[in-house]
Design a protein around this nucleic acid. Structure first.
Lengths: 254, 254
DNA sequence: AAAAGTTGTCTAGTGATATAGACAATCCGC
DNA sequence: GCGGATTGTCTATATCACTAGACAACTTTT
């Protein structure tokens, strides 16, 4: 049996809706069109089928289709103009997963403007998740940094990084000063870090996550877990970054 | 700005529901609990909070909670027993993304039973997706194989692989005979293949995809695109595999 | 200039969702 | 054996989603 292989992108979202699944018809239409946009089946500038055609295709009333298009417009994915039609406005960012990633370079490479901020820094006790990944005892003191990144002002990722204490006491101050984790590491005597593992999964955004990333409720998140070590192989950083699956696709190259 | 880092798993799904988002309250509860299970916040064997507690936590009627739990039970994620409580039954498969992947080994390594089948094989004209990845002219003749994989009888992935013709004419017969793509390649004079790129993204399942993978409508898919080459660097295979994000997490290691 | 195509807005009726209450049945701890 | 905790089932009502029709206003095509 060959390793799993994805099917080539099929025709646009299936017109048949699922009734009784707890997802409103208009919402399913939203998700379907959004999936077409995210997958490239609908590209920026493309005009959507007219409302009456979509209604016929999805087997719903034209008002239901309008409810969906209204939501898509509110999310900035499409723009409707009276008498002309509804056009696609969305695009995604190709985000490489690799031994090292530079958010600013990734965004600039896509012809967009990167920005970011350190939302919070605090010393706390390592929870089970961080303790396991950093090889610490549960409850061990750690430094936790929360950061938010954006491309062209659109939130891209919400990330929390955890570092063992007391080794990394003061890292947050160095980070605020240098705006670079790599430079902050160097100031602390660590010439470079190495990626140990990366894990990707996906799930719906919790309400507070959706709010932070300016997403509609329940949008899908790509969750990227990274563990980094110092040159001697000691684990120094465990990070979890949340990305909107509508705005980002993960790319791995060898 | 450091590379994005995920926040450690937060407390269980936010109890507040989003009204007016087109997702029924009971359905949001389903997704929230399912996310807790997928993320490990709720582990197999854990008992869920009682119905009355969940109703209070989510701010809904107990019947609405029961509607959600009924759905989770139908999906095989939880099991309710009168007088005792509701317990978690789900688990996920760690699926490595790497230069080579062996589904059977991955599943066996998780202590589960792998199975799979070749659903279809056909000669067709390359669509834009495959043509781009294989470096072919659009419409060039290709062989397309569709496969389904399962672990312990639970569908894990639906994959479509595309191969250029006439070079790979007969590959499907060799594949049926050897049950191994690597062996089939060797019989055709290709000692080994190499991974060129892998891309991971996520989106809701289309109805026919959900049906094929035995998922509830609208469940989240992890979509893995791979491009492989022969030892000389010529692209020989483009694959898209669809995975349930509830059942699989992608793991990358260096 | 007129017709056709398309989005935008208004009013109104029917079915699904969520709520509510009550009580039965099962399991577990004391 | 009893009480408390929890799931299971029944009936009933209010609110929201979806449908339907009609027509206005704008843009594009003929």
């Amino acid at each position: 049996m060959p390793d799993p292989s994805p099917s080539p992108p099929p025709s646009p979202a299936s017109p048949s809706l699922i009734r009784g699944a707890g997802v409103a018809a208009w919402r399913q239409i939203v998700d379907g069109i959004e999936a077409d946009i995210a997958s490239g089946r609908l590209a920026p500038g493309d005009r959507l089928a007219p409302e009456t055609s979509l209604a016929e295709r999805f087997g719903v009333n034209r008002h239901t289709v309008r409810r969906a298009l209204s939501e898509l417009a509110a999310r900035g994915l499409v723009r409707a103009t009276q008498g002309r039609g509804t056009f696609v406005e969305a695009r995604t960012l190709a985000y490489p997963i690799g031994p090292r990633t530079r958010f600013t370079e990734i965004v600039a490479g896509a012809g967009r403007q990167a920005s970011g901020e350190l939302i919070s820094a605090r010393e706390t006790a390592a929870n089970a998740w961080a303790a396991e990944r950093l090889g610490l005892a549960a409850g061990a003191p750690v430094l936790e940094l929360v950061t938010m990144r954006a491309a062209d002002g659109t939130p891209i990722s919400l990330a929390t990084s955890t570092f063992p204490l007391p080794r990394f006491a003061g890292l947050d101050a160095l980070f605020r000063e240098t705006r670079s984790l790599t430079l902050a590491y160097r100031r602390m005597g660590i010439p470079d870090y190495r990626r140990l593992t990366s894990t990707v999964t996906a799930r719906p955004a919790a309400p507070e996550e959706a709010a932070a990333l300016d997403l509609a409720p329940g949008r899908i998140l790509l969750v990227l877990d990274n563990v980094n070590t110092d040159p001697e192989g000691t684990r120094i950083q465990a990070t979890r970054a949340l990305f909107s699956a509508d705005r980002v696709e993960m790319v791995v190259e060898w």
